[in-house]
């Protein structure tokens, strides 16, 4: 009985560290992505407009708000009491990224994803971005649904 309890405790500790590690990972990606674009709004708006999904004013609005949202989500993921909400917004963001990237891939648009400003090279290809967004979506879903409660 005591052995079972100890195994469960060890599993719980591992799970807790896994959740913390994943939160840091997703936060780091969002922080990097947001910081690369937050002061390059015109450039980012041009990248959004290349997807040919939004009108020009829509691209400008999204370009103004999305980098700060990424930074805010990164902060929330690191804060006790806020990380689950951060994960929920991350699910929404990555869901939208996945849909936009899939649409660009299906239309065979000759663009890069614009995810990290102009510095990412191969990391910005649509295929790589789709893989990354899907991975982050999966991790965010896992975080949101994990049984960890109110851990720092």
């Amino acid at each position: 009985m005591a052995e079972q309890r100890s195994t469960r405790r060890a599993g719980g500790t591992m799970m807790r560290w896994l959740v913390i590690g994943l939160r840091i990972l997703v936060a780091a990606v969002f922080l990097y992505a947001g910081s690369q674009k937050v002061f390059a709004v015109a450039e980012f708006a041009a990248a959004i407009n290349r997807y040919q999904i939004l009108p020009l004013w829509g691209g400008a609005l999204v370009a103004s708000v999305l980098p700060t949202l990424e930074i805010v989500v990164a902060g929330a993921l690191l804060l006790p009491g806020w990380w689950r909400s951060g994960a929920l917004v991350s699910i929404a963001l990555n869901g939208v990224f996945c849909a936009a990237l899939l649409s660009a891939l299906l239309r065979d648009l000759p663009i890069d994803c614009g995810c990290f400003g102009t510095t990412a090279g191969l990391w910005s290809s649509l295929g790589a971005a789709q893989l990354r967004a899907s991975g982050l979506l999966g991790i965010s879903l896992y975080l949101f649904l994990s049984e960890e409660r109110e851990q720092p």
Partner: peptide
């Protein structure tokens, strides 16, 4: 909370 996060980011942005 997610609404607060989105509102905060929108205002800041």
């Amino acid at each position: 909370q997610p609404l607060i996060l989105v509102a905060l980011a929108t205002v800041l942005g």
